[in-house]
Design a protein around this nucleic acid. Structure first.
Lengths: 122, 122
DNA sequence: TATAGAGATAGATACCTGTCAATATCGACG
DNA sequence: CGTCGATATTGACAGGTATCTATCTCTATA
């Protein structure tokens, strides 16, 4: 089935707006929906954060797991995690003193579908 | 097969550095290589430009094909195309008076592979 | 209740970026 | 050779962003 799809995606859910770029010209509205997702990932620190969370045991990691991987202050990492969370890429769950982050599969799938069918043209 | 891969990618080719994010923690070096690609796409105008080029007849489009789709000045579109080109996402070919842009399949494949295996976790 | 540790927020600063108007370049064609 | 039309480049400006230090909030626990 794929994701209902077509050009007009659900304006409520930015993740639904991921018809492959190669399939048809993306509308301005859809582009405005999807761009923030990509913008959130388009940073070396956030790329690594996302990768760390995704590849961490159980698919989740707390901030304390992530901090040691960087030469950055704790507030800076917290800021980047917030950007990823606000974009809908990471889920956030507080358990006791620790906060655990987990990637949202729907967001990952959305990004994936964006670039589908464009790598093997004619 | 896939792309040789591992954590250490070919530093000469940023497009080679696309082990899926979920597979292992991305190195700082790889993140610095890949982030510019994503940054280039992380803009609504450039997303649409890329989509227009990809979905255009023959997989290529000249600037004159692209301009009418936007309410932006010609220099602004030219700027965005340059960003996409400099990032390695678009190839540029001048034919007569017109300049044709075409998506680089390797770049598209690189982005695709980045998000592979992250959408369907456990 | 006081203390300590995990994480978020606020404010400041330096840098990057998207946009435009003006101008330059480059190729076709009288 | 001069002009025209298609793109690119330049310079300027407004808005965004990554980072830090300092501080706040919240939870567990002595």
């Amino acid at each position: 089935m794929s994701m209902s799809a077509g050009a007009g995606c659900d304006p409520d859910d930015p993740l639904a707006c991921c018809t492959p770029l190669a399939r048809e010209p993306m509308s301005a509205a859809d582009a405005e929906q999807v761009a923030p997702l990509l913008k959130a990932v388009a940073d070396p620190v956030r790329l690594r954060l996302l990768s760390l969370v995704l590849s961490h045991e159980g698919g989740e990691a707390c901030v304390c797991d992530l901090l040691p991987a960087f030469d950055l202050s704790q507030p800076t990492i917290s800021h980047h995690l917030k950007v990823l969370h606000d974009a809908g890429l990471l889920d956030r769950e507080k358990r006791g003193v620790w906060v655990y982050y987990r990637a949202r599969p729907a967001a990952m799938a959305a990004m994936l579908s964006l670039f589908a069918d464009a790598g093997v043209p004619a």
